[in-house]
């Protein structure tokens, strides 16, 4: 469910990885992974748990989806996720990371 009141900004749109950023406040960064989603692989995945992950707009969140639904088996995907998260972590100066997903 996309949230209309939160400014969740699409970032990476690669074939193997999509990300969105939400810049909140504080030192916690939530890494929120999208569920498998619609049975039609042509339909894009959406961010999940926007209100909870951002804590109603206060926490930093990077939303991540695997559009090919590979369960981390795409070559280089694990490293790519790590890099994207570290980059955003540095940007928002987060000191603590938690992960969330369904």
């Amino acid at each position: 469910m996309q949230n209309e009141t939160l400014e969740i900004v699409p970032q990476l749109r690669d074939d193997d990885l999509h990300t969105w950023h939400y810049v909140g406040t504080g030192d916690v960064l939530v890494v929120c992974f999208s569920p498998t989603g619609d049975a039609d692989p042509q339909l894009p995945q959406e961010v999940s748990f926007p209100q909870v992950a951002t804590d109603n707009g206060t926490r930093h969140v990077i939303f991540i989806s695997d559009p090919q639904r590979t369960w981390l088996n795409a070559p280089g995907l694990r490293e790519k996720i790590y890099f994207q998260v570290q980059k955003f972590k540095e940007q928002v100066k987060a000191t603590k990371i938690v992960t969330l997903g369904h």
Partner: peptide, 18 residues
């Protein structure tokens, strides 16, 4: 799949909680 990722990536990211 998101739950799988939350577990799989937590250690890589040095997360405190997954």
């Amino acid at each position: 799949m998101g739950g799988f990722y939350a577990l799989a990536c937590a250690a890589d990211l040095d997360a405190t909680a997954a």
